[in-house]
Design a protein around this nucleic acid. Structure first.
Length: 535
RNA sequence: UCCUGCUUAGCUCAGUUGGUUAGAGCAUCUGACUGUUAAUCAGAGGGUCGCUGGUUCAAGUCCAGCAGCAGGAGCCA
């Protein structure tokens, strides 16, 4: 079905022409049908028209991406889009977001009056009907010789902020609502879409169940980070209990609630019934993190697999990452090539040692064609200790020995200097990892794994989960995790527990890796960061 | 949260040792031209130099505080 707001006059005209069969007058607002009177405009005033797809649609248009793939043979088409540039009062570069490539609309000299031409400004929206012919110019294969141009929406050039020139990413962030109309963000968000689609396809093809874990959670025991509180309690005159603490018994849910920091614990409930599940949804962290790779609201993918161990987990993660990169390479080649060029130009500004050794496309191909390096935490410490970097005391944080937490400079050294490819680090000391990770036989380490990617750092964090009830419970006690709050989680270990494993992958970091964008705020439509929730 | 840097026209940036009326390119507007490729050419308009206070005869320039932005660190995905 297709909906289009129309003026009463347009509706009357369409109905009189009988080109369109008006099936329903649809009430504005909620979209519910108010009247059903074929061909009668009287009921459609200030309403939305709803036309059946079988009937000729008002907006029957050819996407510019599809048009550019055709042979120019004099065929008549209608395209709609936004003006990128208007040169010479004659050539309109029109873009509709289906591709970065524009269709060149040619306006015959003298066919339009000057006042009309002056309204063809950057980002004005047009409906153009014309014939497609081979271009006389050199920059493009085809021209659309316009026979009819309709301005759908004017764009005041004096105040429209985007210009046909290079803008800084910082400036575009301030106009995030318009930045999709640039080539860079067009490509980034088409690739983002492709990756999201590929994720669902990958898991669906493998028989995983897509599970919707809650956004609002009551447990604050996960320890994954600071949480945003969810409450309907008043800020002034907040109800208090006898001890003077906020009385959440009076709150909406009757208890304290937060936005989720992870769907993992709920995911484990699904995995211990369906076998294999995955989640893909928004996640929230109230950490005061101001970096190029943290967001307060981000999207996370969390598969969880029953009857699996750490190695199965690593295998899945590696296959998964390859699959979605391959999908983007196969389906968004043009966008990736544009982004590769953009990145190459950006890196020209940097000193030699800060530039990537490979171009974006080469980097992605390298990841597709080479196995990830798999090493244990213990091996990593040895490599770092023996490195020239350490001997020359180039690390800001010295390698103190086994048991230390790795700093990002250490991870970067392993990934970018030593192995020069993605690295899967496993079997960390239990002291520096979460309570639910499975304890290894050595009594010192847990079956955890992180995947580190060049330029991004940690992209995946996962583990085999502790399926043994007693071990899990004693670990929770050690770490002061209240078991009464997680009674439901512990039930999976009480009733038919199985070895299982899973991981979390930060979607935006993956999009960063694939698009080469260096700031995470440029791969999510409307970034939420400390002090910033515009749009 | 900590460290560092930045803030001058719509955008990207110059602005010397503190010294006359703060400049450029692009954009915008007006006009010209017309097969252009971020078109070109000519002209015009556009500034509380982030904010507050201080030093000085004199501050865009020096000092302090605050704010915003960016990069790095921590936390992590």
């Amino acid at each position: 079905m297709f909906y289009q707001p129309l003026s009463a006059a347009s509706i009357r005209r369409f109905c009189q022409n009988q080109k369109f069969l008006v099936q329903h007058a649809v009430c504005k607002g909620d979209g519910s049908i108010k009247q059903s009177h074929p061909g009668n405009a009287a009921f459609a005033d200030e309403s939305y028209l709803c036309c059946s797809q079988k009937i000729k649609m008002f907006n029957k248009r050819t996407r510019i991406k599809e048009l550019l793939a055709q042979e120019p043979a004099g065929q008549e088409v209608t395209v709609m889009g936004w003006v990128r540039t208007f040169r010479n009062n004659q050539f309109i570069a029109l873009n509709d977001g289906s591709t970065n490539n524009n269709i060149q609309v040619v306006v015959t000299l003298g066919s339009q009056d000057d006042d009309f031409l002056k309204r063809i400004t950057t980002s004005a929206s047009l409906k153009v009907t014309g014939t497609v012919v081979p271009s006389l110019g050199k920059g493009q294969r085809m021209d659309l010789n316009a026979t009819r141009i309709e301005i759908l929406g004017d764009s005041d050039a004096e105040i429209y902020p985007l210009q046909p020139k290079k803008h800084s990413l910082e400036f575009l962030r301030e106009i995030a609502h318009l930045r999709f109309r640039t080539n860079t963000f067009g490509s980034v968000f088409r690739v983002r879409h492709a990756l999201a689609f590929a994720i669902h396809k990958f898991f669906n093809d493998k028989g995983f169940v897509y599970m919707h874990t809650p956004i609002i959670t009551a447990s604050d025991a996960e320890g994954a980070g600071e949480m945003f509180k969810v409450t309907t309690l008043p800020f002034d005159d907040t109800p208090r209990n006898e001890e003077g603490a906020v009385n959440f018994a009076e709150d909406f849910f009757g208890k304290a609630t937060n936005l989720t920091v992870s769907g993992q614990l709920e995911g484990e409930l699904g995995a211990t019934a369906f076998g294999d599940i995955y989640t893909f949804g928004p996640t929230f962290r109230a950490e005061n993190s101001n970096t190029t790779r943290h967001l307060a609201e981000f999207w996370m993918i969390e598969p969880e697999m029953a009857f699996s161990d750490l190695e199965d987990n690593m295998n899945l993660a590696e296959e998964f990452i390859r699959y979605i990169i391959r999908y983007a390479m196969d389906n968004n080649r043009e966008d990736l090539e544009f982004l590769a060029q953009r990145l190459a130009e950006e890196e020209k500004q940097l000193p030699q040692e800060k530039r990537g050794e490979l171009g974006l496309i080469e980097k992605l191909e390298f990841v597709l064609n080479n196995d990830f390096e798999r090493i244990t935490y213990t091996e990593a410490i040895d490599i770092l200790r023996e490195s020239n970097y350490n001997k020359k005391k180039k690390f800001q944080y010295p390698i103190t020995g086994w048991g230390m937490d790795l700093q990002s400079e250490h991870e970067r050294y392993l990934v970018e200097k030593h192995f020069k490819k993605p690295v899967i680090l496993s079997n960390y000391p239990k002291e520096i990892k979460a309570f639910y990770m499975r304890q290894n036989e050595d009594g010192k380490t847990v079956a955890a794994m992180d995947i580190l990617a060049p330029g991004i750092g940690e992209i995946v964090g996962g583990s085999q989960r502790e399926e043994r009830f007693e071990k899990l419970l004693s670990r929770m006690k050690d770490m002061h995790i209240p078991e009464e709050e997680l009674w439901w989680y512990l039930d999976t270990r009480r009733f038919g527990t199985v070895p299982h494993a899973g991981f979390g992958l930060g979607f935006e970091r993956m999009v960063q890796f694939v698009t080469g964008m260096t700031n995470i705020r440029d791969v999510i439509a409307f970034p939420r960061t400390p002090g910033s929730a515009e749009f």
